[in-house]
Computed example of a mutant assay.
Amino acid sequence: MNRLFALTSLALFTALPISLPAAPVYPMTAKIVTEKLEAVELPRIRLSGKQDIQMDYYDALEIAKPSNESMLLKHRFLPNQEISLTIFNGSELQGGVSVESVARYLRRKSEEAARNKQFFEIITQPEGGEGPAKIRFLGAKPITIEYALTRDIDGKVVRCIILESWAQMDGQTYLLRIEAPEDRYQQFFGLSKSLAGSMYFVE
């Protein structure tokens, strides 16, 4: 009986979608620093926290005040385009990070939108470790999804694309999120992919 109960409990736990805590466990401070490479000084973005992260800097992006993210960057002239990084303690993230938990998380978002009669369209389902990754960051091969919803931008209903990329490393969970109006998404995704690929942990 106890073994049956344990197996049933395990099945229920593994069936859970990702459930986000109220706030990131590790808020970070973002600032622009200078890195000297040979005779050239280049600007970089440094995220200071429990473990520092550094990445490339692009003039088109500026550091914004985060709400529930660890770091938020917005397009300097088109603020509806943004990229963020949120870091959670792995133990605070119910469901863990797997293809199954991310798929259930995505399905739950779709069901919630349907109940609220809001537009929501799944564009990319999470995939496993086979094939090339759509985006990489911090040396990880994350699990990535894309979906569309609508925003009110300057009094107009605009279809926006959101990418969420999940990775779990050393007991922490990292969520990289990109959002842009659909007509600008591919261009902004290219910029964001390059930025994400430049992220590394500072020793």
Rank of each mutant, 00 (worst) to 15 (best):
I153V: 14
A6M: 10
P132S: 04
R46K: 07
S84V: 01
E41Q: 08
E112G: 08
A140N: 12
S91I: 10
E82Q: 07
L4W: 02
Y200G: 15
P142A: 04
G139F: 05
S98D: 09
A114C: 14
G49R: 02
A39M: 12
A39Q: 15
I83Y: 11
A60V: 10
A133V: 07
E100T: 09
S9C: 13
I145N: 00
F88V: 07
Q118N: 12
Y58V: 12
R177D: 08
F188W: 08
V97R: 01
T8K: 11
L93N: 01
V40M: 12
D52T: 00
P24T: 10
V158Y: 15
L61R: 02
A22N: 10
P27C: 04
E100I: 10
I122T: 13
L47I: 04
I145V: 08
V33T: 10
V157M: 12
D59N: 03
T150F: 15
E38Y: 12
D183L: 14
I135Y: 00
A167T: 04
N2V: 13
L47K: 04
V99H: 01
I145W: 00
L163S: 00
Q186A: 15
G129V: 05
G96N: 06
G139A: 08
E112I: 11
A196P: 06
L106V: 05
L195A: 02
I18D: 09
I161L: 07
S48N: 04
H75L: 07
R108H: 09
S19H: 06
F5S: 15
K36I: 14
N68D: 07
K65E: 08
S67C: 06
S19E: 10
V102N: 02
T124D: 08
